[in-house]
Design a protein around this nucleic acid. Sequence first.
DNA 1: CGTGTACTTGAGAATTGTCAAAGGCTGTGG
DNA 2: CCACAGCCTTTGACAATTCTCAAGTACACG
Lengths: 238, 238
Amino acid sequence: MGSLQYCEHCGNRLCIYRVPLFSSLSEENLHQIASYIQHRSFEKGELLISEGESTDSLVIIHQGVVKAFRYTAAGREQILYLFSEGDFFGEQYLFSNLKATYNVEALSPVKICLLTKSHLHKVLLTHPEVAIKLISELGKRIAQMENTFQSMGIRDVDARVATLLLDFAERYGREAPGGTLINLPISREGMANYLGIARETLSRKLSKFEDDGLIQSLDLKTIQVKDSDSLEDLAGLS
Amino acid sequence: MGSLQYCEHCGNRLCIYRVPLFSSLSEENLHQIASYIQHRSFEKGELLISEGESTDSLVIIHQGVVKAFRYTAAGREQILYLFSEGDFFGEQYLFSNLKATYNVEALSPVKICLLTKSHLHKVLLTHPEVAIKLISELGKRIAQMENTFQSMGIRDVDARVATLLLDFAERYGREAPGGTLINLPISREGMANYLGIARETLSRKLSKFEDDGLIQSLDLKTIQVKDSDSLEDLAGLS
DNA sequence: CGTGTACTTGAGAATTGTCAAAGGCTGTGG
DNA sequence: CCACAGCCTTTGACAATTCTCAAGTACACG
């Protein structure tokens, strides 16, 4: 998993304070867990995990954005998740001996916190409330995947693109006069692959949306949402 | 959630013995949990849960098959899951006060076991190993959804149909001379909606597969897989 | 055995994918 | 600071696929 680098910029405690997973713990318990945590940093483009690798840690994103992806039989990259600050992954492998089923790559400089399998087991067995929190977080993720899944099942491509834009606006946007500014974490190609459409099709849809005044592409990595109501209509959130 | 009916055919203990969730428990603990369990039966076509309803129980399928679905903005039914014996659902709502986000309908006569929110909490807090098992099961479900998600992202429709057939063969098939017999739990329309394609397109694909000798449609609810290797090729599992 | 529902098949319209070329941004090196 | 190379993106044109609408067929149920 790359070379080990201790994270200089965050005190051990900071990380786990930010993580919803541990939010129900007392100061004392947090200290105990903090002592188990390891830190690493990655540059943009570095792989945190490769498919097939065996992993033994829960990974919590402390800073930055990563993408989790696989390659389809056709060789296309299928993005499964974008994880950012406070998100975690790797939980599937903590109670089984499965190998990683996807690759994870840093899309920006990234700092992560690691909690090994055995340490996490210790925490869960002694703090059932953390287990309940984890179950709850997994439930949330499942609910979110159900939504994504449903939007993938939508045949109308305009609706899928609109849904993605709204989703990004919520997760990566910041309010500005004239509309929410989205700082796109991935390229057009990445978005197209995420949606399961050709990148040319995505380009055309975005151009059409721009012509219709729904969005404005300020820069390849910045899109401004000018008319979120119309986007919501398109997305089918009537 | 329909009218309450005690399940006459299964002793209380039977249910939870079958559920992987509780497989790590001792005889004694099983007895304790068994005392919490309630049973109900549903006829084919009955709704177990309606979208927006508030639920307070974990539902474990003891017998039969159910579908979980929502309606898209276009009014189309989008199937999210098919659950059968040993599967459970409703866990998302146990640690939040969210309402159900999908409908669940019996596709056959169904018997379920119910464990209420407060009872489950009690079990999890006193038996951390059940919590770990639950986390592990949720992880499995997430991994499975990731696979489904990826296959939804495949642009090639033939591949998606082949993937669905192989999946069904594994879950609902039984071996027979000449190839696995699949007992389809849902209609063609349901399959088409699940895949996000028009039902006519699915018909055409199935007809083509039959012409090519990959499958044989014996009956509207029975398909025989004649050439699973070719299906796997199509699905992209090279 | 008839009726209703679900499924299949056909044909034309609409959408998307593919291939090709041009445009724009980024970073390097002079 | 500018020029150029490389990569990503956009646009165009055509081919392929899928959707829609419509008619006909098979099956299930009463």
